[in-house]
Design a binder for these strands. Structure first.
Length: 345
DNA sequence: GTAGATGATTTAAC
DNA sequence: GTTAAATCATCTAC
């Protein structure tokens, strides 16, 4: 009859904070909101976190596809529950209507019954929302956790990074510009470059012997180039004006002021070119050359702890022995802890 | 399946 | 903010 309405019961429902929280989350994740652009915020955040890799869009669409799947399931289930709720309410109302023929039924009693039904169904709905939220959280954490989809860098990228590392072994702290350059060359992000150098430094330091072979490889690889470049630099220095002969594609790595290593190299070779006038790429090549000279002249026992290559790079504390290490007399400006700029212009 | 390699993250120091 | 160091999670070669 007229009194048999379910509206009253719905209006009486106090706003459940837990339910509100779930609703808000589902809305934010694009599960319960408008159809278009669902979960875009989360996907965008995840995309940003993934570091902008080339397969980013694929994973992005994968995320969206899965989110859509969750959304569909949620809506189907929600619809089912609502339908079941309505059907059951109608059924109970019909029963009450029939009963009203035999006994008087007050509107309050009807309201109470409807209230019970709704509470039951809303608790089911709450469970649905909760499990949907959990599903979204799992999906999101899987998508956001970069470690789960770690990809090794390409061989070329690793080579570029290694070349830089071993040719700057005296101070393997690329400046921001150098990092950007390397990132561009390797098609990775600057933070990936930083990560790589962080990992490389610590792993190299921990086991120099293990990396000796690799160091030799990269040193030999660039030895010819270094020899040519140094020769050219010397020639330039003798014949040309003091302008920096810096046309390397790897950017300009200038030597601000000669360090121990560099000075050693000068005496080692007997050459007398000035570090401040030669492009810093030469300095890296000097590193390489020195290593090659040491390696060919020295005896490698495989452990490398006291090899000719490593000790000049690492100080007693395990830090990198650099020309600009604070303990050094020459230049107390740089070293671990500050952004190094052996490539400063 | 496993060991080692490797990229990413976390924590603490600076 | 960057860094070292430890750790995690995944990849890769066997």
């Amino acid at each position: 009859m007229r009194g048999l309405s379910i509206r009253g019961a719905q209006e009486e429902d106090p706003p459940d904070p837990q339910l509100m929280r779930l609703d808000n989350m589902l809305l934010a994740e694009g599960v319960s909101g408008p159809e278009k652009g669902g979960g875009s915020a989360a996907a965008a955040a995840a995309a940003a976190a993934s570091g902008g890799s080339s397969d980013n869009s694929i994973e992005h669409s994968d995320y969206r596809a899965k989110l859509t799947q969750i959304r569909q399931i949620y809506h189907t289930e929600l619809e089912k529950y609502e339908q079941a709720c309505n059907e059951f309410t109608t059924h109970v109302m019909n029963l009450l209507r029939e009963q009203s023929r035999t006994r008087p039924i007050s509107p309050k009693e009807i309201e109470r019954m409807v209230g019970i039904i709704h509470r039951k169904f809303s608790s089911i709905q709450m469970q649905l929302k909760q499990s949907t939220c959990e599903a979204v959280m799992i999906l999101r954490s899987r998508f956001l956790d970069a470690r789960r989809k770690r990809r090794n860098f390409s061989k070329q990228a690793t080579e570029i990074l290694n070349e830089y590392f071993y040719s700057h072994l005296s101070n393997p702290y690329p400046s921001e510009e150098a990092k950007e350059e390397l990132a561009k060359k390797c098609s990775i992000t600057v933070s990936q470059v930083s990560n790589w150098f962080g990992n490389k430094r610590i792993r190299y330091k921990k086991n120099i012997g293990k990396f000796q072979e690799e160091a030799n490889l990269y040193a030999a690889k660039t030895a010819v180039t270094a020899a040519h470049a140094v020769a050219a630099a010397v020639q330039n220095n003798q014949t040309n004006s003091p302008t920096t002969p810096n046309s390397g594609s790897s950017g300009s790595f200038n030597l601000p002021n000669s360090g121990d290593m560099f000075m050693n190299m000068q005496s080692l070779n007997g050459d007398s070119y000035q570090g401040s006038q030669v492009g810093a790429n030469v300095q890296s090549q000097v590193d390489t050359l020195r290593h090659v000279i040491n390696q060919t002249g020295g005896y490698s026992d495989g452990l490398g702890g006291n090899s000719l290559y490593s000790p000049h790079n690492l100080n007693a504390n395990g830090g990198w022995q650099d020309a600009t290490t604070p303990s050094s007399v020459t230049s107390p400006t740089e070293g671990p802890g500050s952004v190094h700029s052996d490539t400063s212009n």
